[in-house]
């Protein structure tokens, strides 16, 4: 593999030196483009665990920086099961900055912050998981209850 671009080295350094509260991203030793990520569910959202992080409400993700990063966006996917209208069963995320609104001036940290914000503000009008979105629209309370239940069940350390 070609040498790691300065941009990625700098970003990695900054992620470990000045971590974003509630978010961690650690590269694999054998592949510095592959990151293990955790995001804490935002407070007052159904993704906040009854046990606080690191014991509950912690979601695992994987993040990969493709060869042409930062010209193309990183690939991010939830590994922890999550009940959310914009995240499907395979953990794929529907988020504009990961697709058409990607800018090379964005960074890993900004992307992860956007994902955290998405947890705090689900958007059932632009769904990826249709069944979840429908439930969200028809009976929001029930949907939120299910999301909480899933958080309890799956998002723990």
């Amino acid at each position: 593999m070609a040498a790691l671009p300065k941009r990625i080295i700098k970003e990695t350094e900054r992620l470990s030196k000045e971590p974003v509260p509630g978010i961690s991203a650690v590269p694999h030793d054998d592949n510095l483009r592959y990151f293990d990520v955790t995001i804490d569910g935002p407070a007052q959202s159904p993704y906040e665990g009854t046990l606080l992080p690191p014991f509950g409400g912690v979601f695992k993700l994987e993040l990969f920086l493709p060869d042409d990063y930062p010209m193309t966006p990183p690939k991010v996917r939830f590994l922890t099961k999550i009940y959310h209208p914009n995240i499907d069963r395979l953990g794929r995320i529907c988020l504009d900055v990961l697709k058409s609104n990607w800018s090379p001036a964005l960074q890993i940290r900004t992307i992860l912050l956007s994902i955290q914000a998405l947890l705090g503000a689900p958007n059932p009008d632009d769904p990826l998981a249709n069944d979840v979105a429908q439930q969200w629209k028809e009976d929001q309370n029930q949907a939120i209850a299910t999301a909480k239940e899933w958080t309890e069940k799956f998002a723990k350390a």
Binding site: P5, K6, R7, P104, A105
Partner: peptide, 8 residues
Amino acid sequence: FVCDICCE
């Protein structure tokens, strides 16, 4: 100047 894309 520091380039935001390549950090050079």
